[in-house]
Design a protein around this nucleic acid. Sequence first.
RNA 1: GGCCCGUUCGUCUAGCGGCCUAGGACACCGCCCUCUCAAGGCGGAGGCACGGGUUCGAACCCCGUACGGGCUACCA
Length: 489
Amino acid sequence: MSDPVRVRFAPSPTGLLHIGGARTAIYNWAFARSQGGTFVLRIDDTDRERSTDENTASILQAMRWLGLDWDEGPDAGGDVGPYFQTQRGDLYTHALELLKDKGQAYPCFCSAEELDARRQAAMASATFSGYDRTCRSVSREQADARIMAGEPHVWRVRVPENRGDVVIDDVIRGEVTWPAESMDDFILVRTDATPTYMFATVVDDWKMGITHIIRGDDHLSNTPRQIAVYEALGAPVPLFAHMGLIFGADGKRLSKRHGATSVVAYAEQGYLSEALLNYLALLGWSIDDATTVFDRERLVSEFDLTRVSKTPAVWDPEKLDWMNGVYIRAMSPSQLVDAMTPWLEAENLASAEDIQARRPWFDALAPLISERVKRMDEIVPMVRFLFDESVEIDEASRSKVLEKDGAGSALDAAAEGFAALEDFDAEHIEATLRAVPEATGVKAKIAFQAVRVAVTGTMVSPPLFESLELLGKQASLARIAAARPLASD
RNA sequence: GGCCCGUUCGUCUAGCGGCCUAGGACACCGCCCUCUCAAGGCGGAGGCACGGGUUCGAACCCCGUACGGGCUACCA
């Protein structure tokens, strides 16, 4: 048996939960769950300028919405906390002390300006552009004296001279090698004594016992530097898994230019969390050659880190829409009514109490719309005619339907037939309408569309007979009467 | 400039040397169904970046080239 799996997701609360971050979280979560491991959530809030509590709260909420639960982290606790980097200052201080004692870190007094100049020169001409290790040769005594004198300095890692090429066996990409000469004595602790990202994450991942680091391949090039820190610390090096990023249609990294990029934005647009989870999981991973739709349980039972794609994936809103439609159609009428309740409430079409009181009516409405919408926000416009007092008939519908010859006669015949109905249900309504063409000589298409426009206000609506039933006899007749003056005979 | 990674239909992908006449899904096109719109059914078009090897045999292995991406920060 191998060691118990411990993975983490470590978002920075400098913004909302991004869909790229969400996918990273999903893969970490699915891997932990599939391995019976532990999923840790850590908030990397070292960027104090841009990090906010609101963002943290929103990220946690978005993760819960997606159904991603964490075993350790904010609100969950755990033995290796705190789970906010800003509260872990002591750990970084101790780690640096450890490195100093071992001679694995040294102070560097080079100014940022000097470094800049040297880097420019190196990049223009030669090969390697990393730090030239000037301050490595400063003796311990000299260094101590300069520090005592208050000279500004950073702390750099001392990469061993005899360190050979760095090789990792990436779970997703296989063996990756970096030449020893490319190893840089990069900065661990800044002039202001705060740790750099490179140092803080390694200390955290080490102290938190993380066994697998699953992240975007934008971090692949950072890996050898982080390995240098693990080795300096004498810490076990975890396994790495670098996945391809998510791009926009233009092949560039996904950003605001490409539309909504946050999970909450998708929730607000009416995407179901199950659908977004499924779509995101499938963007860079697959079960087999045929499975596209799968639920959370299947994701966990089938998840295989080695099957995650190396290739960047292009975000495809159309496929997301299709998949969301699949999930909407898969809901029972009752489930759909529950899901659409907040949307109806938000637009003041009905309150939750109304809906409960007239549950059978809403349950009957659900199937009429479920196969006609891809997003929840499309429901209100589609059913509004059932809730408003009256409808406004748009110009196109009037000219293209009501002004057709015979439209008026059809409305008259329909009204007459409806008025005579005792049971105003879809079946009788259909029979009545189907009799109209014969009685009036008006084409069925024209007759049906005339009634549709009169009752719904538009040429496109849910199925007519059922819609009329749900509207009720009185309202239906009133709308036909109201539209009649607009219609040609 | 240096180092690293990647490249299968428009898009997401299956493929891990013979099962490939390259499979599935979205999108697209056509037909069917049909009270509009959908949903659904059936069918179609569409791809191994390029060039060299290796092999009896290559989408799969190797080497180049091209293109794309990442890192090269006292950002994360």
